[in-house]
Design a protein around this nucleic acid. Structure first.
Length: 303
DNA sequence: CGTTCCTCCTGCTAGC
DNA sequence: TGCTAGCAGGAGGAAC
């Protein structure tokens, strides 16, 4: 489940159903799901046993469980859902899904945590927790940040989020503004859907050179990304099908509120012009041809 | 160094 | 009906 709102929905579900429980056994069905854990899936499962889940935390699209061993040592189980990953809380006797890659069982013999991922672009790994140098003092990540994701920038929902810094870095980019929005090392959490929605709200074509936009203009785009992700979160996230669900298997319904993404040919809700679809960065971009005029050198910055 | 491109997978849909 | 090309909410690492 890709972008920030959907991942946050999952994080909250983990907070409700997994935090406070002690892992009794873990199983990883294959090396691929644990490929970021270099010692391999068996080692990963062994190391999880006996840990208590203290918290479920998130930055951008990365999730992690703060694990505490009996000796008090804490580590993070970092989870990325990739394009099609799901975390589901289910009874251990529930039928096994076709792409079930990992299970965590707890010593209370209650529900089981499952990682299901059709494409296995997602995965899990253990990481040390290090102080969050960017957001220190905000009290947001009291146990720190996984060392393996220190390259990921704060997301717009974090107290540590520094809008002025993001604007400055965007301004310095020699690239299209949409590429900047999608760069998780610049601002995290935004993916293809919410980038298009933010650009539509800001009335900017994503192919425009970031450096050619004004600082206030860049700020408006990032603010719109923040706003649209917050609204989506209130509605449980965006889901077009059963692939994107919360830990209980339920879909969000922000897809009804999308203004640009996936609306090719449908009338712009502002001006009525048919929404256009363009190839961009080997994927699709949706925008209003009238509200979001492309840069004059059409094709240069856009492709 | 910064920026762009390719690749990892499976499944569904549109078009022949 | 059956096949295949194309596309899908991501991101790291190779290639320029």
């Amino acid at each position: 489940m890709p972008e920030l709102p959907e991942v946050e929905v999952v994080r909250r579900g983990l907070g409700d159903h997994v935090v406070g429980r002690r892992i009794e056994t873990a199983h990883f069905g294959g090396a691929r799901v644990a490929r970021r854990h270099l010692p391999g899936p068996v080692d990963l499962a062994d190391r999880l046993t006996g840990n208590v889940v203290r918290a479920a935390d998130r930055r951008g699209k990365y999730l992690w469980l703060v694990l505490e061993a009996t000796d008090g040592h804490r580590q993070a189980l970092v989870i990325h859902l990739g394009m099609s990953g799901q975390l589901l809380v289910e009874a251990a006797i529930a039928p096994r899904q076709a792409h079930l890659h990992a299970t965590l069982d707890f010593d209370d013999d209650g529900s089981q945590l499952r990682f299901v991922d059709q494409r296995t672009f997602g995965g899990m790994a253990l990481a040390d927790l290090v102080p969050d140098v960017r957001g220190a003092g905000a009290g947001e990540h009291p146990w720190g940040i996984p060392e393996s994701i220190t390259h990921i920038a704060p997301d717009p929902l974090e107290v540590a989020f520094d809008l002025a810094a993001v604007i400055a870095r965007l301004k310095a980019r020699h690239t299209a503004v949409k590429r900047g929005l999608l760069d998780q090392q610049l601002v995290s959490g935004i993916g293809n859907i919410y980038a298009d929605e933010a650009l539509w709200r800001a009335r900017v074509h994503g192919g425009r050179a970031a450096s050619a936009l004004s600082r206030p203009g860049l700020g408006r785009i990032v603010d719109q990304a923040h706003g649209v992700m917050l609204e989506a979160l209130e509605q449980g996230g965006t889901s077009f099908d059963a692939l994107y669900v919360n830990v209980n298997g339920a879909s969000g319904y922000f897809d009804r509120s999308l203004d640009a993404y996936g609306r090719q040919g449908a009338p712009c809700r502002r001006c009525g012009a048919p929404i256009r679809r363009e190839a961009f960065m080997n994927r699709s971009s949706y925008s209003c041809p009238r509200c979001q005029p492309p840069p004059r050198a059409a094709g240069v910055a856009a492709r």
